[in-house]
Design a protein around this nucleic acid. Sequence first.
DNA 1: CATAAAACCTGCAGGC
DNA 2: TGCCTGCAGGTTTTAT
Length: 276
Amino acid sequence: MPELPEVETIKETLKRLVINKTITDVSVYWPNIVKRPDDAEQFKHRLAGQTIRDIGRKGKFLLFQLDDAVLVSHLRMEGKYSVHPSNEPVKKHTHVILAFSDGEELRYNDVRKFGTMHVFDKGEELVHKPLNQLGPDPFDAAFTAEYLYQRLKKTERSIKTVLLDQTVVAGLGNIYVDETLFKANVHPLRKASRLKKREVKAIWEAAIATLREAVEMGGTTIRSYVNSQGDMGMFQQELFVYGRESEPCKMCGKPIVKMKIGGRGTHVCVACQEMK
DNA sequence: CATAAAACCTGCAGGC
DNA sequence: TGCCTGCAGGTTTTAT
């Protein structure tokens, strides 16, 4: 389930594979993936003839920078990109194919079909959904402890729920929120508005540190994630709470507890992360 | 307005 | 063996 570190890793591996390749043909096998333009034929026309000049990332979105368009792609839970010779058999769950002039293809595979693609004229992508509502990237200078404090102060929601809100900060998902709150010693059910400034600062530091470390390790492979070259991430070895229900806390030895918060599975060490 | 829940999908684990 | 239920998860849409 790609969150920021996984998308960042995918972006970097993909760059080496498709930069300067020219799209000659586009196939769409599951049209619901394509959200803009809403017609698959127009989508194909918009991409055909374009060369991939660069690949960027905003939060969990990949941005394929083309000559005069931008393809904005979200992988949701299980979306994957990979590059193959065009004569290689197409796997099950491959829903979109960009064929290049050199005989290779960029294939989008997504078991759950939740991923999305939007094409915009260059420069338009930031003022329309889905990118226009995104909060700062955690690695952006605009993401400061003070900014986070101001945002948290205004909501009665639990800190767990707020950190998953992409309009507050873009890129954290279920795994890294649980890890961040553990590292900051904050219980996920704490009301965001009641957190002390020093607690918010601890959360801010823990989020950036956790994400940076995960990027360095190529992301976390829990169930199915691999980068665009098929490599697994290594950060799962570093997880303190996520996926460790009933296992001993690496800090205090008490069993990790799993609970549901805002409909999401949430892992917590109730000894290390005080409710107060 | 704020917040919660449903919907989108498929595969897989667990119960019977 | 196999059917049925529930769960997983990011985001948007719909309901409260």
